[in-house]
Simulated scan of single mutants.
Amino acid sequence: MQIAIASGKGGVGKSTITASLLYFLKDDYRLVAVDADAEAPNLGLLLGVREWEEEREHVGAKVARISTESCIRCGICMERCPYDSIYIDDDGNYVVNELTCEGCNVCGLVCPVPGTISLEEARSGVIRRATTKYGFPIISAQLDVGRPESGKLVTEEKEWAKRLMEEQGLEHMVVDSAAGIGCQVIASLGGADVAILIAEPTPASLSDVQRVYKVVQHFREPAYLIINKADINPGFTALREWAESEGIPVLGEVPYDRAIPRSMAMLKPFVEAFPDSKAAEAMRDIAERVKAEILK
């Protein structure tokens, strides 16, 4: 089974919940974790990864190159570039800023000298594998600065994880999605068997989890909800009311607990660092429901 954990919003504790859920599932199931936030991966930190055992470059982005030999310095490319990625260097040459170039090739189309501007492949980032301190593998990725194709990186991560599942006889893939509803999240949810949504009881979090739920509906996946920091806004009932109206089962509520930021500073899941905390007790109950209702 492939489980995607998404939130639609950053800062709601999605990676923290994911790490703790993996901790409770590791003894009963053969797992592989996927950190699908290629722009800001951090799941490996919470799972005790100190170094990566294998890394693969992902090449797929395109950037423009201007030949200084045939360039007539007319400046049309710089005028027409929609991303303002072309500038004049100290020697008077027209140069492409690779960090902002999107590879759209507008410059190549408007250049009056054929062959002066070309599109060349560039590295988008790196995909890497490690074994967590708990014994199960994790696949992660790191997008290079200014590079597109974060969704393709996530897709490659999941393909690598699928191969590991086949080679090692693993049962379940747990995917920690990025925030928002962009390419990374779409790639995370695509092909999943179930989505677990994480939200906190605030209007902003409700709005964002509603948006990501529409993506889940597009893929026709069953969804569940975990309410994190459940007691920070006692009078806010709209989140649970929305879940009930949509028929989304609530797996449980995790209270705000100072043990969680302390465990993050220790680079451990809070259920391991502070097993007797209120948050850990709530997370233990949620893990049991996941086993009974999702992984049955």
Rank of each mutant, 00 (worst) to 15 (best):
I17T: 14
I117G: 02
C81G: 03
P82C: 08
I226Q: 05
I260R: 03
I248D: 04
I294H: 00
Q168G: 03
P222I: 00
V216N: 02
K26T: 08
V216M: 10
P203R: 10
R30S: 12
E120F: 06
E272F: 05
R289P: 08
L153S: 02
S124H: 04
L143H: 09
R123F: 10
E167P: 00
Y23D: 00
V59F: 07
Q210W: 08
R129V: 12
F270D: 07
I294F: 03
K229A: 11
P261R: 14
D89W: 04
K214L: 08
P137Q: 13
R211T: 03
E69M: 04
C77Y: 04
M165W: 00
A178M: 01
I227P: 00
C183I: 10
I72C: 00
F236G: 15
V145G: 01
N97D: 15
E69P: 00
P249H: 04
A243M: 11
A19H: 06
L239P: 01
I117L: 10
P249N: 08
E102S: 04
K9L: 14
F274I: 03
M1Y: 04
P148D: 05
V113M: 08
D35W: 12
S118M: 12
R56L: 08
R123E: 11
S15E: 00
V175E: 09
D144M: 07
Q2N: 02
E246S: 11
E69D: 07
I294P: 02
G11S: 13
K14N: 06
L267K: 15
Y224N: 10
E79Q: 02
L43F: 15
D276A: 14
R262I: 05
L46A: 10
